[in-house]
Write a protein that binds this DNA or RNA. Structure first.
Lengths: 261, 261
DNA sequence: CGAGTAGTTGACATCTCTCAATGCCGGTGG
DNA sequence: CCACCGGCATTGAGAGATGTCAACTACTCG
């Protein structure tokens, strides 16, 4: 439903900024990892300096994705993985009957699109929730590089394995937690990710709707909304639409006693 | 709970067959991929003949795991991935309060343990549901090989990406399906996997308890049981404890119109 | 100003869980 | 050999959580 209403919007936007077409070369200047402020979070994370230099030789294309525009759709050929520079994306899968399952939200420094490596085409669709800036990393070049630079092989596996872990904890959440625990886990996860990027861990702005949060957490938007107000009444949060202030971080953590490592 | 009652059992067994200790070298003769009857499903799947020959040079150790015994535990050092030769395994994660979330069941020709690659230790535990025979594949050797054999790099990424896809569909299942759809999806998935191995797609024996199925599908064992009887009343299945006969495969598919393709 | 979108809230329906009783089976020990 | 026990599965009744439907508000965009 959300997808159905948003797609026309996406194409409207595409007409305005027609240069940003799917899978096209960059319109903005290329970028080097070594000088990127996200280098400690993103692709080069954990790499040795000489290996990062090799990455620089690849000159990743930059691209802007407007709010509501899709980066790739389910079934699109897998050519790139994408590093988020600024902004927020969501990935989602579709059931035949139109039900949407949001499989992830991605913020600055995170990598998107690895799900395509198995079959050569993307298994999910990814859309910008706000105006977003990305690096497009040609996957083929990356694996070529891995053949010559021994450390690179490890980097790729680590990226994928990290993705597997991420999905593990989502499965945990969906499989064995109730609504309170799910929302608490979600907010704490976001909080940590913002904190790692130097933003406040207690106060942030959600870029996604209640329906999108609900889909991600396996619950309906009304339940998300009710859980937000419940948390507010328990003095864990202050909520004003999409603006969140965590007033009792410890209390929130107590809701969600997961030992996800 | 399941884990707590089964662990002592595992160690009892270990005393009896003391040679099969965690992460130890094989006690059974090593095996070559090229002559394995599972080669088209397992690790070498999709590889060129010369590359498979390179695999053979690694001489994977074989190991037996008795029913109830664990292959690795959460937190164990990640050294091997394991290929199932015969038998069935389950992987699971634990919440701090003891709730278990089964994250997968693995049968012949499937690979287990890749979740450890990100952090160097396993994020889940894996246990045999029946007497099981595996190949232990040293992950370090595999990545070394990837550095010299260009095709191998691709194989590893494909394996991991496949794991990501598998978890995607589980997320879909947990996030947006009801009890009927979940159980139908589970049975159809099993059916397909057995069919791919030359077994009947309509009749098979479940190696896991109702509680384990329930944990995997995010529902309670009673609900699993009730759903089985409902399917039986609708003439979709014949169920006798763990023996399943699918009498209306198409009808079952209609329950679960997922386009996970 | 009017239409559309997002969010909140209430009332009620439905689904799944919880607790409890029972049956079945295989293994063990008298 | 049989009685007993423990584990697994099934079933019922009732509770509780979440979903559904609908009304209402606030806000944005044209």
């Amino acid at each position: 439903m959300a997808a159905a209403t948003l797609e026309p919007n996406a194409s409207r936007i595409r007409i305005v900024s027609a240069t940003h077409s799917q899978a096209a070369a960059a319109t903005t200047p290329a970028t080097q990892c070594s000088s990127c402020h996200l280098r400690d979070l993103c692709l080069p994370c954990g790499m040795a300096a000489p290996d990062i230099d090799r990455l620089d030789s690849m000159q990743f294309a930059r691209r802007k994705v407007k709010a509501g525009q899709t980066l790739y759709r389910e079934g699109d050929r897998f050519q790139f993985i994408y590093a988020v520079r600024t902004g927020t994306l969501k990935s989602s899968l579709m059931l035949a009957d139109g039900r949407e399952q949001v499989s992830g939200f991605h913020i600055a420094g995170e990598l998107v699109g690895l799900d395509g490596a198995a079959q050569g085409h993307h298994a999910s669709a990814t859309m910008a929730l706000e105006d977003t800036d990305i690096c497009a990393i040609p996957y083929g070049h990356l694996t070529d590089l891995a053949a010559s630079v021994s450390g690179m092989q490890h980097v790729i596996s680590r990226l994928m394995s990290r993705e597997i872990l991420r999905e593990h904890s989502l499965m945990m959440l969906l499989g064995s937690m109730n609504a309170d625990e799910r929302l608490a886990a979600f907010l704490l996860n976001l909080s940590q990710r913002y904190a790692a990027r130097g933003y406040s861990e207690r106060e942030f702005h959600l870029r996604m709707s209640r329906a999108e949060i609900g889909s991600y957490l396996g619950m309906k938007l009304e339940t998300v909304s009710r859980t937000f107000t419940a948390f507010q009444q328990q003095r864990l949060l202050e909520v004003d639409k999409r603006h969140i202030r965590i007033t009792d971080l410890e209390g929130l953590k107590r809701r969600f006693e997961v030992r996800v490592h």
